[in-house]
Computed example of a mutant assay.
Amino acid sequence: MKTVTALLTIALAALGFFAFKLYQEQNALHTRLAELEAQLPEKLAQQGSPAPSEAIAESHTRPRPQPAHFQAETIPATPVEERAEGRIIRDFSKIMDNPQVNEMMQASQRATLEVMYKDLLDAFEFTPEERIHFMDLLMARQMFRVETSMKMMGGASGAEEMKLLGQEMKEYDELVKSEIETFLNDDKDAGEFAFYEKTLAERMSLSGFKKSLQTAGRPIGSETERSLLQIMAEQKSAFDFSSDLAEEPNYDLSPDRFSPENIENLESDMQSLHALIAEEAESLLDNEQLAALIQSLEAMREMQLSQLRMAANMFSQKSQP
């Protein structure tokens, strides 16, 4: 589930970035168009051309020239319009070749990683140079994921290529993991890094939970937070999922995995899992805190299911002939 969520988060970030670029370009085009329209009457008068209304009227009555080879019966059927999601991601992957755009994307991704891994970075107490090197390793993996996920979601990859891209991402992830373990040079720190990555989704859920408790003046301590993370990780590890969407690591993004039935199975699984987590958390929390935790778990479940349904929509075109 973490792999799928990570890839979808990358895609959404890319889409948001690309949408902003399109918005900027659209505004520039509108400005330029307005300038040209303002200059049009003067240019037409200088050239002795008819007024726009006259030119339009004439175009309706003048016969349109046809190419010599034109044959109406041989015109191929218009292909089905490409899905907007696939087209946008495909176009985004092309503009990523632009050094300036790539630099901006890297800055955006680095800022995101700084937030995601802040607690871990602070706990390791790196020197400035060590922190930069650690972030460089995370960034190398992140940008490889960005580029590979853009290829996966661009709509042009067949089943075999999708499988190959997934394998390449897995191998690169393992390479970076090995580099990070070598850099940390400590089994305890390496274990802490592995636990942190394993519980990224749970930490996201608990961040909302902690914020709601702080607002209510009922914050939890760091030991309680760690115990909750441990409960969530252990319950998830022991749970017998009926959907392979929960498997980790799993780099398979084939359309069949995102069938409505598979997503519904995962939804049922997550409801049961979160009920077990809430039951075990009763010993750590009072009634008000427990209610806030349950609400946070429900919000996390809805977010993940929403991402999976978006993935189903993105990838469904790949299964169509």
Rank of each mutant, 00 (worst) to 15 (best):
95 I>M: 08
106 Q>E: 12
264 E>K: 08
316 S>E: 09
68 A>Y: 12
24 Q>K: 13
225 E>F: 12
96 M>G: 04
304 Q>P: 06
82 E>D: 08
24 Q>S: 11
21 K>A: 15
37 E>M: 05
272 S>W: 02
261 E>S: 14
242 S>R: 03
92 F>K: 05
181 E>Q: 07
286 D>C: 06
1 M>T: 10
169 M>P: 07
165 L>M: 12
132 I>S: 05
182 T>H: 15
86 G>F: 04
251 Y>Q: 11
65 P>I: 12
217 G>C: 13
162 M>F: 06
269 D>C: 01
62 R>Q: 11
265 N>H: 09
24 Q>I: 13
185 N>Y: 09
133 H>Q: 06
172 Y>H: 14
33 L>I: 14
274 H>A: 07
24 Q>W: 10
185 N>A: 11
280 E>W: 06
170 K>H: 15
51 A>Y: 09
298 E>D: 13
291 A>M: 09
145 R>N: 10
235 Q>T: 15
239 F>T: 05
231 I>C: 00
127 T>S: 04
68 A>E: 11
100 Q>D: 07
202 E>N: 15
223 E>N: 14
227 S>Q: 15
74 T>A: 09
227 S>G: 12
98 N>V: 06
48 G>V: 00
187 D>P: 02
93 S>K: 08
307 Q>M: 06
314 M>Y: 07
94 K>G: 10
86 G>T: 08
126 F>Q: 04
193 F>G: 04
26 Q>H: 15
233 A>F: 03
148 T>C: 10
184 L>S: 05
207 S>T: 12
244 D>S: 04
282 E>L: 07
279 E>D: 13
168 E>P: 02
305 L>R: 04
60 H>P: 02
131 R>N: 04
2 K>Y: 13
68 A>V: 12
47 Q>I: 06
221 G>P: 00
108 S>D: 05
289 Q>K: 10
44 L>S: 13
223 E>Y: 13
291 A>N: 05
106 Q>M: 11
120 L>D: 03
122 D>R: 09
47 Q>V: 00
